[in-house]
Design a protein around this nucleic acid. Structure first.
Length: 135
DNA sequence: GCCAACGTTGGC
DNA sequence: GCCAACGTTGGC
């Protein structure tokens, strides 16, 4: 089981949208590194759901419910999408500032390469996020 | 709204 | 194959 972090601007598609939809197609990724991460996702993997720009916080956990397939928003075979389902809302959002404050998370991709929209997360990092979300 | 960081494009 | 120019993302 692998862990990931997916980013979205809440005004474009936020956690509340996923709660309403229950599941959604994670498409529109046009970055090779992010694409490679999408392709590496396995059914049942968990992904932290991060709100960029407005919130700057991890707000929930999504579950990969369908492994990578052709991105329906383009004909170019280079790009793929996955389907994610609503899994669990965090008790408390974990803000970017909280992540940066915690020494155990100093090497998170979110900190090191904040622009990457689909990131791998280490199990140990995932555990720390869970701990922080408990308040 | 600004700008730094990063990725991509295209001329040479 | 290098690198300057440009566009985009996202934190502040």
């Amino acid at each position: 089981m692998n862990y990931w972090l997916i980013k979205s601007e809440p005004s474009t598609y936020g956690w509340s949208d996923l709660e309403k939809d229950k599941k959604t197609t994670w498409d529109g990724v046009r970055n090779y590194q992010a694409r490679n991460n999408l392709q590496a996702m396995k059914k049942g993997d968990l992904a932290l759901f991060y709100h960029s720009n407005e919130d700057k916080a991890i707000v929930g956990i999504a579950k990969i419910s369908k492994e990578s397939f052709q991105d329906p928003t383009t004909k170019e075979p280079a790009w793929v999408a996955v389907e994610v389902s609503m899994h669990k809302k965090l008790k408390n959002p974990v803000g970017l500032a909280d992540v940066k404050k915690d020494r155990r998370l100093a090497n998170m991709v979110l900190v090191k390469n904040s622009r990457l929209s689909v990131q791998p997360v280490k199990p140990s990092e995932f555990d720390v996020i869970m701990e922080l979300s408990e308040g």
